[in-house]
């Protein structure tokens, strides 16, 4: 199967030459379309850094990130913004919905960036809210939603633009285990239904169990690549 995500000798170092922290060190990785992959490892192992680089949110010190055959390092700022908007969905650890917008408006915002017409946006919002089990909650502001509901809305926001990849950094970290497992099950179901590639980081064993592929990171290097 053709690689959707490919990193070649990917390095991300922080600090000065004298005191250098190797957050990611010569990582070669390939993830195919439709995978449900977990990046696991202890805190400081480089999970977030890897996801940041794959998502084009950070620039590598050296090496290459290719998404669907495109080297994202060669993109200009605007091209990268457009690429993220159209091809990548993000789910953040702390939900990070825009607090002044309702759940529905948060989801609509991404489509607004894509230039989708208002009527189509409204229709898609309803559909996606139903898909993530949040019908009837679209008018609520984030503060009026539970953590689990906020994260479902965040997944809906990531999905609505029909991205190729959804990157989720510890999406269950702020949720209780039951809600976290429920969210993961929903993500897995969407992965199967929509064939969207999910790459998420976690250090929760119960969450890891649900992944089909586990990439173990330690000290910025891939320790083990386990396919189940």
């Amino acid at each position: 199967m053709e690689s959707l995500i490919k990193t070649t000798q990917l390095c991300r170092y922080f600090g000065t030459e004298a005191i250098q922290v190797k957050a990611l060190d010569h990582v070669d990785l390939e993830i195919s379309s439709g995978e449900f992959t977990a990046i696991v490892g202890p805190s400081g192992s480089g999970k977030s850094t890897l996801l940041n680089l794959i998502g084009g949110l950070d620039n590598p010190t050296s090496g290459k990130v290719e998404l669907g055959g495109t080297d994202i390092a060669k993109m200009t700022g605007t091209e990268l913004s457009n690429f993220r908007r159209d091809h990548i969905g993000f789910v953040f650890q702390a939900y990070n919905l825009i607090p002044v917008l309702s759940a529905a408006e948060n989801i609509e915002y991404v489509m607004l960036l894509q230039g989708v017409a208002a009527t189509e946006r409204k229709q898609k919002v309803e559909e996606i809210l139903e898909k993530v089990g949040m019908q009837g909650l679209g008018d609520r502001r984030p503060a009026e939603l539970s953590g689990g509901q906020q994260q479902r809305a965040a997944v809906a926001r990531a999905l609505v633009s029909k991205p190729d990849i959804i990157l989720a950094d510890e999406p269950t970290a702020n949720l209780d285990s039951k809600t976290g497992i429920g969210l993961l099950d929903m993500m897995k179901q969407l992965n199967e239904e929509l064939n969207v590639t999910f790459v998420f980081s976690t250090h929760d064993e119960k969450i890891m169990e649900r992944a089909r592929r586990l990439i173990h990171l330690a000290d910025g290097e891939i320790e083990e690549d386990e396919i189940r």
């Binding site: 700022g77 605007t78 913004s81 690429f83 993000f90 990070n96 915002y109 991404v110 960036l113 926001r157």
Partner: peptide, 16 residues
């Protein structure tokens, strides 16, 4: 600032 990080990650262009 955190929120700007989020909306930029979502694909908001600098001009927007």
């Amino acid at each position: 600032i955190y929120e700007f990080g989020v909306i930029k990650a979502l694909g908001t262009r600098p001009g927007q």
